[in-house]
Design a protein around this nucleic acid. Structure first.
Length: 245
DNA sequence: ATCGCCTCCTGCGCGC
DNA sequence: TGCGCGCAGGAGGCGA
């Protein structure tokens, strides 16, 4: 049942028909997309900033932001909720990796395909800020605004430095820190800023570990400097001029 | 091809 | 205390 079809991308008008009598065969992930394999086709789901998916037995009446219910034959419901509607629920009959939204994505950050050499090679002659560069899904997926600031802080690279002017040595450090930051954040259950919770409704606590993000004006954890903030590519970026260059 | 900018949306925090 | 404004963010899309 679709109550609100205007998400980041419109929900297919025939979603109900596409899902009728379908079984869930497998659930996987690519970048920040959840891929649900059905008998015929895949659901492609993104949670945006504020979305969540819950499996509920005999669910209560839907609330304001409960946009989609996918009902199974045993009273179980997969409920998609997203206050800001930055996510999407799409369907494809083809290999989901060939879908327009997925086909140009770069490697998973925790996979072997993500290497310092890739960062270095792809960045040659690129004038874009290194922070924007690592947030570009064609370069590497999964690095959002918070983890970009944190990785660059640890690697000692200023976020607004041109991507093409960062050395292989620096990219090697950055590569390691991106992986470490993401692993730590996953282990901590994610980063709760305002209202994010995990699938069990608990807040992630990686926000307690942040050295740079959101700490404008606060003392640097590494030197006697102060954390600065600058908007880069329409996103807040936090850094320390003592530690990063 | 690359880059900068705009947009979607709602809840929250801040200032008056 | 209450109200209203502005900000936050993932990522597609567009114009230059």
């Amino acid at each position: 049942m679709v109550r609100q079809k205007m998400l980041r991308h419109p929900v297919p008008g025939n979603l109900g028909k596409l899902l009728k009598n379908q079984r869930v065969i497998d659930v996987t992930r690519r970048a920040k997309y959840v891929l649900i394999q059905l008998d015929d086709g895949h659901l492609i789901i993104h949670l945006g900033m504020t979305g969540n998916l819950r499996v509920i037995n005999k669910p209560p009446a839907p609330q304001k932001h409960d946009h989609i219910d996918i009902c199974f034959e045993d009273n179980m419901v997969l409920r998609y909720t997203d206050p800001r509607r930055f996510g999407c629920v799409l369907h494809t009959k083809r290999d989901p990796n060939l879908h327009k939204l997925l086909k140009s994505l770069g490697p998973e950050p925790l996979s072997e395909d993500f290497t310092p050499e890739r960062l270095h090679q792809l960045s040659r002659k690129r004038k874009v800020a290194v922070k924007n560069f690592i947030m570009n899904g064609a370069v590497v997926v999964g690095v959002g605004n918070i983890y970009a600031s944190e990785s660059l802080f640890r690697a000692g690279i200023l976020p607004h430095k041109q991507a093409g002017r960062v050395s292989l040595q620096k990219y090697t450090a950055l590569h390691g820190h991106i992986k470490a930051v993401l692993r730590e954040a996953i282990k901590a259950g994610g980063t709760t800023l305002r209202d994010y919770t995990n699938a069990d409704g608990f807040a992630g606590y990686f926000s307690q570990e942040l050295d740079a993000y959101g700490r404008k004006g606060e003392p640097c954890n590494r030197c006697d400097g102060v954390i600065k903030m600058k908007v880069i590519g329409q996103r807040s970026s936090f850094y320390c001029t003592g530690c990063q260059r």
